[in-house]
Simulated assay, not measured.
Amino acid sequence: MTHKTLIACALGALMIAPLAQAAPLTVTVDNIQSQAGTIRLGVYDEAGYSGGDAVNGANISVDAATASVTLEGLAPGEYGIKLYHDVDDDGDMNASPFGMPTEPFAFSNNAKGRFGPASWDDAKFEITEEGAVQTIDLN
């Protein structure tokens, strides 16, 4: 092998290595009451879960009682999901004058919040190199 061929192979291996570590996450949302609007879903690492940016996410059009999406490219590790059903498709999670959500919402592991979002410890789950599956009941 020539020196240039070795360098090209090494660079190719470096480019493929991150892809080999990326894992898929399949999220299924069950018990959707209104077959209209959009499920707005964010996947967070621990640093972003309490108000930071999502590391991945999706908007899923709703036309049945169940909706699914597979997200690609997540590194193995711990994550949490926050989602809400934007029934009126206005792009916002609607709330009462007292700040209580008026549109359905849920968290990974079907974790429940008390006077706010579910805690990281209750919502976190592991994505391995093989990926992960989360089934979330929207109620």
Score class of each variant (00 low, 15 high):
Gly37Gln: 14
Ala123Met: 03
Met93Gly: 07
Glu129Val: 06
Gly116Ala: 13
Ala54Val: 00
Ala106Arg: 09
Gly51Lys: 00
Val62Met: 09
Gly42His: 03
Leu138Phe: 04
Pro97Glu: 08
Ala17Phe: 14
Ala58Glu: 05
Gly91Pro: 13
Gln134His: 04
Asp121Asn: 05
Tyr44Glu: 06
Thr135His: 05
Gly12His: 01
Asn109Ser: 05
Asn110Glu: 00
Asn139Val: 13
Ser61Ile: 03
Glu72Trp: 01
Gly57Asp: 02
Phe107Trp: 02
Asp122Pro: 02
Gly42Cys: 06
Met1Phe: 11
Ala58Phe: 01
Gly131Ile: 07
Ser50Pro: 07
Cys9Ala: 12
Gly37Cys: 14
Thr38Gln: 12
Gly77Gln: 11
Val55Pro: 11
Leu71Tyr: 08
Pro18Ser: 11
Ala58Pro: 01
Gly113Arg: 06
Thr26Leu: 06
Asp88Met: 12
Phe107Gly: 03
Ile39Cys: 11
Ala22Ser: 09
Tyr84His: 11
Gly48Phe: 12
Trp120Val: 02
Gly42Ala: 12
Asn109Pro: 04
Gly99Met: 03
Asp122Thr: 02
Leu11Asn: 05
Ala20Trp: 13
Leu71Gln: 14
Arg40Lys: 15
Lys124Glu: 08
Glu103Tyr: 03
Leu19Met: 15
Ile60Lys: 08
Thr26Lys: 15
Ala106Gln: 02
Asp86Glu: 10
Cys9Met: 11
Phe105Arg: 12
Asp30Ala: 07
Lys112Ile: 02
Asp137Val: 11
Glu46His: 08
Ala47Lys: 15
Gln35Pro: 07
Ser108Ala: 02
Phe115Ala: 04
Glu103Pro: 07
Asn59Lys: 15
Gly99Leu: 06
Ala64His: 04
Ala13Thr: 06
Val87Lys: 14
Leu25Ser: 09
Ala10Val: 14
Asp63Phe: 09
Asp63Ala: 14
Ala118Ile: 01
Gly73Arg: 13
Ala54Gly: 14
Ala123Thr: 08
Pro97Thr: 08
Val69His: 05
Leu83His: 05
Ala75Met: 15
Thr28Ser: 10
Gly57Pro: 03
Pro104Asn: 09
Ala106Trp: 00
Asn56Thr: 02
Lys82Tyr: 13
Gly99Cys: 06
Pro76Ala: 15
Ser34Pro: 00
Gly12Gln: 03
Ser50His: 04
Val43Asn: 05
Ser61Gly: 14
Ile7Ala: 08
Ala65Asn: 05
Ala65Gln: 10
Asp122Trp: 00
Glu129Cys: 01
Ala20His: 08
Glu126Arg: 15
Ile81Lys: 02
Asp121Thr: 13
Lys112Cys: 01
Lys4Cys: 05
Thr38Pro: 10
Phe107Ala: 07
Ser119Phe: 08
